[in-house]
């Protein structure tokens, strides 16, 4: 007897018939379960949302007045015939993998994830399952992340050199997640830490939930740059080179992203420095996550899908590529999602 799979891949996104809900849907649906607050996963227009306690405040901040409920990590609830729970994905603070069990069969939609502990996000938790949906943003063996401490030292060395040369260091990163992770890596003894409005807004929400971040100062329009010599400014990449940024006078620009591993992309960004740091798993990270789930059936999305899928199939998994509208796949070097 064959039966319909627990999760199916539809035009609107990942759908669970047993519970009549979607995971990270692309188009408006009645009920949406959201893995994390990045814009290509948490979209507006859903009837009702369910997300972790850590993610919901960010969603409310970004999506405004929505009908939503939140859930703690590990708490099991019933939706229709499905048992659902959320587990840390280690991607950004509050991010989750969603475990769905129907009639003893377990599926995990992992959203975006990384398996290294960044000291800020709740560390990735392997969830045993039969079917595992994985991203593959950096699903090539050329992507190998260095220890966070190594990259932190590179960034701090660069910042010190900028400060010594009388320049402001501008470090570009996505406003939610990456920016806060970078903040936690900075050595506040070097100088003042300033933040762009978009970053400071995320900071406020995360601090409100009890995440610890170093002291920052909002670089608003009335901040006087020369009163903050030797500063580093954390901002979205789009703000670099803007009128706002030019007020700071002599400056260097750095860019933090997994894509910076590739020299060609690093040079195309035309900043002064590229730092290789990502909130997505690297090649080894993806493989180890998949192994730890014990799943035999893998669904690859979001990235170097064809290549990663072929490798998995050659190495004993039943794997297939599923279509995606997640833009994080290659969103320039911005690596948003």
């Amino acid at each position: 007897m064959t039966r319909a799979p627990i999760l199916s891949f539809t035009d609107k996104g990942i759908y669970c018939a047993a519970g009549d809900f979607y995971v990270d849907p692309w188009y408006p649906v009645a009920r949406a379960l959201i893995t994390h607050g990045h814009a290509d996963h948490a979209r507006p227009g859903m009837g009702t949302y369910l997300a972790t306690d850590g993610t919901l405040p960010i969603m409310r901040h970004r999506l405004g007045d929505i009908s939503a409920e939140s859930i703690a990590y590990g708490q099991v609830i019933r939706i229709g015939d499905a048992q659902v729970s959320f587990h840390p994905a280690g991607h950004v603070p509050g991010s989750a993998q969603i475990r769905i069990e129907v009639g003893g069969e377990i599926w995990v939609a992992s959203g975006d994830y990384k398996i290294t502990d960044d000291g800020l996000s709740e560390p990735f938790e392997p969830v045993p399952c039969h079917h595992f949906i994985t991203e593959s943003t950096f699903g090539l063996p050329v992507f190998r992340w260095a220890e966070q401490a190594t990259v932190a030292a590179e960034i701090n060395t660069w910042w010190s050199a900028c400060a010594a040369a009388g320049k402001t260091a501008f470090l570009g990163a996505y406003a939610l997640g990456k920016a806060q992770r970078l903040l936690s890596m900075l050595d506040p003894d070097i100088g003042p830490i300033l933040t762009h409005t978009a970053v400071e807004n995320s900071n406020r929400v995360l601090r409100g939930q009890g995440y610890t971040l170093p002291a920052t100062r909002h670089a608003s329009a009335d901040l006087i740059p020369k009163n903050h010599p030797g500063a580093i400014v954390i901002c979205p990449p789009s703000a670099m080179g803007s009128t706002w940024a030019r007020r700071f006078g002599p400056q260097e620009t750095g860019f933090a992203s997994g894509w910076m591993a590739i020299r060609g992309i690093r040079r195309r960004r035309a900043g002064d420095r590229g730092f290789v740091i990502s909130d997505h798993a690297d090649w080894e990270g993806l493989l180890s996550a998949i192994k730890q789930t014990g799943a035999e059936n893998i669904y690859v999305t979001h990235g170097y899908t064809d290549i990663f899928n072929k490798y998995l199939n050659e190495n004993g998994w039943q794997s297939r590529v599923i279509p995606t509208q997640f833009e994080g796949e290659t969103a320039g070097a911005e690596e948003q999602a």
Binding site: L140, P141, V142, F143, R144, A261, I262, R263, G264, Y304, I307, Y311
Partner: peptide, 19 residues
Amino acid sequence: LFEDSYAIVGDLAETISLI
């Protein structure tokens, strides 16, 4: 897989040093 990676990185010396 090496060749596919090389096609994306675009530089053999770099692909080797990364992989």
